[in-house]
Write a protein that binds this DNA or RNA. Structure first.
Length: 188
DNA sequence: CGGTTTTGACCAGCGC
DNA sequence: GCGCTGGTCAAAACCG
């Protein structure tokens, strides 16, 4: 199975998500957690139908992309506005890399350390569940994220980040020295 | 009262 | 060109 971790990690503050009934550790300093929770699939879309056999070992699947590695996304639409040529993944607006990961959680909103403003909610054909659109309200920061429940298993939440924050997370100071891992940590 | 969420309308891209 | 679809806008409603 091919998977790898983005390097550098474009989201330094995505290390640990807390959700009701679910604590999703994204701290790559723990190898056993990293292997099960911090995956990058070559082609998340194409593997969706066969995901049942892959996801039996963990409760979370993550897909990451950055300009260094191939892209994969949780988006299931055939028109996902994504370019993936020469290992560079960007959307049509060139906002930046997109990262998608799948988390088992009862809550759709997870605290990733950044502040988000909801600007849209849409029912999409590829997913019977509603898709929520958020953007970073910080001036000059155009990072967006989409949140939707897995079409096959509504207990999972698919979160797709688009772009890279150009500012520090206001949540950074809350990380403990033990769990905090700097953004340029190499995951292999 | 200011910030956030909701929600219908609008727009752009794509396939036919 | 037209219809479908996903993404965004913006006014109104909501909330602390």
């Amino acid at each position: 199975m091919d998977f790898y971790f983005g390097n550098p990690h474009p989201y330094p503050n995505i290390h640990q998500y807390h959700a009701h009934n679910s604590v999703v550790s994204m701290t790559p300093s723990s190898p056993e957690i990293a292997l099960s929770d911090y995956l990058m699939l070559d082609d998340y879309v194409d593997h969706q139908d066969s995901r049942s056999s892959q996801s039996t070992e963990s409760s979370e699947k993550a897909t990451f992309c950055d300009p260094t590695h191939g892209f994969s996304t949780g988006a299931t639409s055939k028109n996902n506005n994504m370019k993936c040529k020469n290992g560079i993944n960007e959307n049509k607006r060139g906002v930046g890399p997109r990262i998608a990961f799948r988390t088992k959680s009862e809550l759709e909103i997870m605290d990733d350390g950044y502040k988000w403003r909801k600007y849209g909610k849409k029912s999409v054909k590829s997913n019977p569940n509603l898709r929520n659109y958020y953007k970073c309200p910080s001036g000059g920061c155009s990072v967006k994220k989409r949140v939707e429940r897995d079409r096959d298993d509504s207990s999972y939440v698919i979160t797709t980040y688009e772009g890279v924050h150009n500012h520090e997370s206001p949540f950074t100071t809350y990380y403990s020295p033990i769990s905090f891992v700097h953004s340029d940590t190499t995951f292999k």
